[in-house]
Simulated scan of single mutants.
Amino acid sequence: MGSTETSVGLRLSELAPRLVQSEIRAMTMECDRMGGVNLAQGVCDTEVPEVVAEGAIRAIRDGLNIYTRLDGIARLRKAIAGKAERTLGITVDPEREVLVTSGATGAFQAAAMALLNPGDEVLVFEPFYGYHVGTLNSLRVRAVPVALIEPDWDLDLAAVKAAITPKTRAMVINTPSNPAGKVFTLSELEGLAKIAEEFDLFVFTDEIYEHFIYEGAKHVSPMTIPGMRERTILMSGFSKTFSVTGWRVGYLVADAKWVGSIGYFHDLTYVCAPAPMQQGCADGVEKLGTDFYEGLAREHEVKRTMIVDALRDARMDPHVPDGAYYVLASAKNLEGATAAEKARSLLAKTGVASVAGSAFFRPGKGENLLRFCFAKRDRDLAEACRRLRALR
């Protein structure tokens, strides 16, 4: 009898035995067990803006605790549409083109369920966010990695076209990206747009880190590229911007012809995003202006400098990100044959948790890289940096 069977013939699905716990979750649990400093998970434990927290508390006290409409509360949808017009220059109908979701993760799952079929192929840019690939795998959709070129993670458009087959239905663009912090340039996105139009592909764009941009880099949404409005599914949320990763409030913007079906699958899986948290996020979008978002970028640019300098002192040669709040760094000087072993070696020596680079690559790649999250309270980040420097 196999480990996936029981005495009465019950068994896991064909997919389940091939799945393992996320390396991010595994390192977080190990870090918690030993009381270390967790730079593994992108928990973003900086302070929640007061207006956001108070908005959610007020909503709870006012009794706004029941199901919302499946597409979210009206004021949040209107606020999202207004934000899209202010920051991206696109007109969005809050009644037909906005869906409030259970995080950007829920947005992607619902969109993939609505728009893709088992056996379809979707291009992902490597290093990729593991949850994108895991979500596609769970739906029996094949994720096809297209490698970005080190050391600056440049895009090779010829490689993109070479990866396309008759089964290719979409591509996933994460900009700024997790884990590399790559910000796709306008010219890169225009090249991808031409490919999407030539091969009639959907473009799923995860823009959750849109406000974490450094040193003159500019965030461009693929949806703003001419000809891309109809085929782009824009996904974002408030987990990172408002430091509320546990609230699970995200959103999706897409052409009305897709939103109805996407909303059906989101309702089926999640019913709705948490009602009072939607109210708090609406307060944040309505009341926090440009100064808040610019301050957020400046604050995290300082944190980026802290971790990059510490990693250099530890002889771990970091890739300096243009956006998001992660750093990929060399682990070649650490003990271990694999990135997972190197991450555990670093945790044992310093009490600092990172994530194996292999979690963001196809098998056999990323084994000399570790990912560090720097969206931490200053005192915790400073302590992590002090511990890393002890490797010298």
Rank of each mutant, 00 (worst) to 15 (best):
residue 50 E to M: 06
residue 51 V to C: 02
residue 51 V to M: 02
residue 52 V to K: 01
residue 53 A to E: 14
residue 53 A to W: 10
residue 53 A to T: 09
residue 54 E to H: 11
residue 54 E to S: 13
residue 55 G to A: 01
residue 55 G to T: 04
residue 56 A to N: 10
residue 56 A to P: 06
residue 56 A to G: 10
residue 58 R to T: 09
residue 58 R to Y: 08
residue 59 A to Q: 03
residue 60 I to H: 08
residue 61 R to H: 10
residue 61 R to A: 03
residue 62 D to H: 08
residue 63 G to T: 00
residue 63 G to N: 05
residue 63 G to M: 02
residue 64 L to Q: 12
residue 64 L to R: 14
residue 65 N to F: 10
residue 66 I to S: 09
residue 66 I to T: 15
residue 68 T to E: 11
residue 69 R to Q: 13
residue 69 R to V: 08
residue 72 G to N: 11
residue 72 G to R: 06
residue 72 G to K: 07
residue 73 I to S: 03
residue 73 I to C: 04
residue 74 A to L: 09
residue 74 A to D: 08
residue 74 A to V: 10
residue 75 R to Q: 06
residue 76 L to Q: 01
residue 76 L to N: 02
residue 76 L to W: 07
residue 77 R to M: 01
residue 77 R to N: 05
residue 78 K to Y: 06
residue 78 K to N: 05
residue 78 K to Q: 12
residue 79 A to N: 03
residue 79 A to G: 05
residue 79 A to F: 12
residue 81 A to M: 02
residue 82 G to D: 11
residue 83 K to I: 12
residue 84 A to V: 01
residue 87 T to F: 10
residue 87 T to P: 06
residue 87 T to Q: 14
residue 87 T to R: 13
residue 88 L to H: 03
residue 88 L to Y: 02
residue 89 G to N: 00
residue 89 G to H: 00
residue 89 G to A: 00
residue 92 V to E: 07
residue 92 V to A: 09
residue 93 D to T: 08
residue 94 P to E: 03
residue 95 E to F: 10
residue 96 R to K: 15
residue 97 E to D: 11
residue 98 V to L: 09
residue 98 V to T: 08
residue 98 V to C: 07
residue 99 L to S: 11
residue 99 L to D: 06
residue 102 S to H: 13
residue 102 S to R: 13
residue 103 G to V: 02
